[in-house]
Design a protein around this nucleic acid. Structure first.
Lengths: 339, 339
DNA sequence: TTGAAAGCGCTAACAT
DNA sequence: ATGTTAGCGCTTTCAA
């Protein structure tokens, strides 16, 4: 037996109609009489027909897929992405929006120079109709590459070059301020911060926001140690902080993972949290709830932001909106046990 | 100006040659004189041409992409995948193999019934040339669906229905035995185990292997508590174990995350690890090195296994091999501080 | 409501 | 070494 994959033609012959009619049924176009619809559906079932996406795309110029791109310029990529709950939350937020519209979400990772090139090539050729990009680095060239390739692109996090893309972002400055004000209000006068890598998106905003809010209260010498968003780096940063500034009474970390690491280190050294040192995290991820004590943290509504991001792309693809649009979300302070 | 995307035709006209010649240059076929190659390349650069994948796929019946499918039948999917270092290691292992051959890796997640259906549809239509599937559940119908759709499919972990697919797997039984023998050899006589969910792939093998090895030494009543592969579930399991069997002197957890949780709980309760209770993990993931004390664990060479898995698929796609093939890796015990 | 036919952009067989 | 040409399987006018 010919092991050929069945085509529209086969279904048409089987059902005794034209290709056009089968196509209409498959694509749910009305103006097809009910009985013909039935017989076509039967023929489809009998033949096991599935549309050929290549042929379809060739004429519609659509793939029905949207790329969710995780991009970083440094190494240790997968280790980071697959251990920070943040990315899972992004995925959780994006999926339902796309699924609802039967847009296939495809995750693409750009872990190296070569990967970026291949990825852009892939998308230029028509791998997906648009891209949702989560840049892990402010200097990431990928968004610009995608835009240059003419691909509808939206970003998680405000890009440096402002308004060329649609994006969603958090008011990071306000978030850092919430942390600072809470620590101040609870009597902390010698706060330090475990900041993000200099090139991390949002890093500057969280650090500056924290410093400014404290400066407004007369605290100008806030110790800063950089972490790398991981539990381990938070632990090491805390060790450094404790060594160089044994009198700190509060720590604001740029994400929950580092705050968790800080708590771990403090507890191991017998330093009471929050008694001796208060710790505030950022994100309100799963790490905030599993940490001991549970973390007081600045909540970033990642799932809602990701859903909005997907919505932005969908609008662009559907032509509902034309220019780039953006949306900024407000953080909320969640007080738990650590501060 | 006509905002049309340039096609082969445009490049051909620009270079003053035929479409076929341009195609040859683009696809790196020899038999094209150097000077013509140059002028074609120039024309490509000038026009900004990129091949249309749909048109290409239509004739080659290839997409140049391979899917890495993460599939689960229960909820809390993204939270699991994006916090267990295991999946990052799989990605790390797969990427280089695919990149090297310029095969685009696309990550697909099947988090629900609907997602599975859409995903299979997508792949049937030609979303990728083959699939690397990491099933999180033994009863996952996805592999069978993909196979039924005629898509080349290989699995991480031996499937229940044996030899219908190519797969890579670890000798989990041997791994569990290593753990049991180490605990026995170091004088532990009242071991317990934190097992995986009943439907988890490899779960049965690790549990049975542990039991059998101990039974051979006369220990037949090994307490078992089920965890869910997370730190938290490991912590809770340990609490349960300690409550119901206060005399346990060793714990074998089915992965490092649960072992980490067990250690955390024990330390919080002031139980010395490994003094009072020895803990052995499984995987040798990043969690093993960050845990305190560092975990003694059964090493699973996930990256190498994932690379081999990708190799299996590549062979199948290239026609180098025909029937399903499989490869089973041997575990190694890594002794650190926890046992 | 249905069918006929053109054509999307490319590769590959064949001809030169 | 290069060109000509016939499709790949589908959607979408346009006619009927």
């Amino acid at each position: 037996m010919g092991n050929r994959v069945p085509t529209l033609e086969d279904v048409a012959r089987e059902a005794g109609v034209s290709r056009a009619t089968v196509s209409r049924v498959v694509n749910g176009v009305r103006n097809v009489s009910p009985d013909i619809q039935r017989s076509v559906r039967d023929a489809i079932a009998r033949t096991g027909y599935a549309p050929n996406q290549a042929a379809r795309s060739l004429v519609t110029r659509r793939t029905g897929a949207a790329a969710l791109v995780l991009s970083a310029t440094d190494g240790a990529f997968a280790a980071r992405v697959f251990s920070d709950p943040f990315f899972g939350r992004v995925v959780d937020g994006v999926l339902p929006v796309l699924r609802e519209r039967a847009i296939q979400p495809v995750l693409l990772v750009a872990e190296s120079e070569r990967a970026r090139t291949q990825l852009v090539e892939y998308l230029r050729r028509g791998g997906a109709d648009g891209a949702l990009v989560v840049p892990l680095d402010d200097e990431d060239p990928l968004p610009a590459m995608l835009a240059a390739a003419g691909l509808p692109t939206v970003l998680f996090g405000r890009p440096r070059d402002g308004e060329r893309y649609g994006f969603v972002d958090l008011d990071n400055d306000a978030g850092a301020r919430l942390a600072a004000e809470h620590l101040w209000a609870t009597g902390r006068r010698r706060p330090a911060t475990i900041a993000a890598p200099v090139t991390a998106p949002a890093a500057a905003a969280r650090l500056d926001g924290f410093r400014r809010a404290l400066a407004a209260r007369g605290v100008t010498d806030v110790p800063v140690v950089r972490g790398r968003f991981t539990v381990d780096s938070g632990r090491r940063a805390m060790a450094e902080l404790l060594r160089d500034h044994p009198d700190v009474d509060a720590v604001f970390a740029a994400n929950d993972l580092m705050a968790e690491g800080a708590c771990q280190y403090l507890r191991e050294r017998g330093v009471d949290v929050p008694g001796a040192v208060a710790v505030v995290g950022f994100d309100d991820s799963a790490a905030a709830r599993r940490s001991r004590p549970r973390l007081t943290t600045v909540r970033q509504p990642v799932e809602r932001m990701a859903a909005a991001l997907a919505g932005l792309l969908v609008e662009e693809l559907e032509g509902t909106r034309t220019g780039p649009a953006s949306r900024v979300f407000e953080p909320v302070l969640v007080v738990r046990g650590s501060a």
